[in-house]
Simulated assay, not measured.
Amino acid sequence: MSDGAGCSAERTGVNHRYGFVAHGGGHAGNRRSNEPQDLCEKETAMADERPEKILAALGGAGNIVEIEGCITRLRCELHDGSIIDEAALKQAGAMGVVKLGAVVQVIVGPEADTIASDIEDLL
């Protein structure tokens, strides 16, 4: 979660599927025993790397004509749609890729607008 909303010293339970945190009295006994102590740092690092990885997989800044977030997808107009690396997109967290010539939609989930904005900052 790029905004850090899921990271809290008092966290007692995290629902990774829906991205919310259940707060409680901060009792250490409520924490899952197999949850790594540095989960927040790992989530933040992964979220921070996503825009760079997605941009690289789309062929780099020079291949982007336009990119915008649309609910759960990154809508990308590219100079050359044939050079994208679908495997790298999926490794960066994409749930799917839809190609139609030079237009590519990368399904990334509800954080699409944030990722698109971060990629635009990199251009």
Rank of each mutant, 00 (worst) to 15 (best):
Q37C: 03
C70V: 14
M95G: 10
T12A: 09
C40N: 04
R32W: 07
P36L: 01
L123D: 08
K42M: 02
G93R: 15
E41L: 05
E43T: 00
L100S: 15
T114P: 04
T114E: 12
G24Y: 01
D80I: 11
G109P: 10
G62D: 15
S33P: 08
G19E: 14
D3S: 14
L89T: 08
D38H: 10
G93L: 13
A102L: 03
A92L: 13
N15S: 13
Q91M: 03
L78Y: 08
A9Q: 12
A45H: 04
E41A: 13
H16Q: 08
D113V: 12
T12K: 07
V103W: 01
D121M: 10
G4A: 07
E41Q: 14
I107V: 15
G62T: 13
L55C: 10
G101E: 08
T114W: 06
I107D: 04
G59P: 09
Q105I: 05
I119H: 08
R73A: 03
A28L: 07
G25C: 12
G29W: 02
L122W: 05
G93C: 13
E68Y: 11
G69W: 01
L55T: 08
C70S: 14
S117P: 04
L39W: 02
I54S: 06
L78E: 06
E86C: 07
K42N: 05
P51C: 03
L39C: 01
H27Y: 00
E86Q: 13
R11Q: 09
E35G: 00
L58G: 02
C40T: 06
V106F: 03
L89C: 08
V106H: 03
G24P: 05
A5C: 05
S8W: 02
D3A: 12
I54G: 00
E43D: 09
G26K: 01
P51S: 08
D118R: 14
G93P: 14
T114A: 14
P51R: 04
D118H: 13
Q37D: 11
V14L: 15
D48K: 10
G59I: 10
G101V: 00
R75H: 00
L89D: 01
G4H: 02
M95E: 01
K53Q: 15
N63H: 12
A61D: 12
C70Q: 10
A112N: 04
D80Q: 09
A94T: 05
L123T: 15
G4P: 02
I67N: 10
E43M: 09
